[in-house]
Simulated scan of single mutants.
Amino acid sequence: MQTPAPPYYAVIFTSQRTAVDDGYGDTAERMVALAAQQPGYLGVQSARGADGLGITVSYWRSLEDIAAWRKHAEHTDARNDGRARWYSHYETRITKVERAYAWDAASGQAPAEASRPD
C-alpha cells in the first residue's frame, strides 16, 4: 500500500479478540470496504497474531474525515458489536504522519518520492 506524501493521519486500532467469531470476519471485511468509500480515506493495513492481538492502521486525509467515519451508522453498529462480543480490549490512537520513508528489497533503494534523510 502506498500513501500520499505527508502530512496525513493514521488511526491505529489495537485490539484483543475474544474466542467468539459470530460474524466477525464478515463485519471486518464490510468495514474495510465501507471505509474505502468514505471521503478522505487513503488506505489500511492490518495484522492479527495467533494470540488474538491485532493492529489495524487506517490512513486519512484529515481529522474531519476520521470524525465522519467514526459517526457512520454501520461503523457505530460494528463498534458496538465489537464491545459486546468480539473484543476483550481495544485502544484507538490517532496521529499525524509528518514524515514517511520506505525501502524496497527489489530495487535496494528507497522510492525517490518517499526518501527523506533520518
Rank of each mutant, 00 (worst) to 15 (best):
S88T: 14
Y41N: 07
Q2L: 08
R85Y: 15
I66Q: 04
S46R: 05
G25S: 10
A35K: 05
G108P: 09
I12P: 00
K71E: 15
A50H: 09
P39I: 04
V32F: 11
W60F: 06
S58V: 01
Y41H: 13
A78F: 14
A10Q: 10
L42F: 11
A28K: 04
D51E: 11
Y9H: 12
W69P: 01
Y90S: 05
G52V: 01
Y101L: 04
A5K: 15
A47M: 05
L63D: 04
P111H: 09
E98W: 03
E74M: 10
A50V: 07
W103D: 03
R70D: 11
P39D: 15
S88D: 11
A28V: 07
K96M: 14
R17A: 09
Q2R: 10
W103E: 04
Y101G: 06
Y59S: 03
E98V: 12
R79W: 10
H89T: 02
R99G: 02
S58I: 00
T76E: 15
S88Y: 08
I94Q: 14
A5T: 12
T56P: 01
L53R: 13
W103S: 05
D65S: 12
A5N: 13
A33L: 13
T3L: 15
R85L: 14
R116P: 00
D26C: 01
G52M: 06
R17P: 03
D104K: 15
E29F: 08
Y101E: 02
D65L: 06
T95N: 06
M31R: 09
E74C: 05
G25K: 09
A105Y: 07
R70C: 00
A35W: 12
S46M: 03
G82A: 08
R70L: 04
R93M: 12
I55D: 00
A106V: 07
P117H: 13
S58T: 13
I55C: 02
W86E: 08
R30H: 14
Q38G: 02
Y87Q: 03
T14C: 05
P111R: 09
Q16H: 14
V97C: 07
D22S: 10
T76F: 03
V97T: 08
V44E: 06
G40K: 08
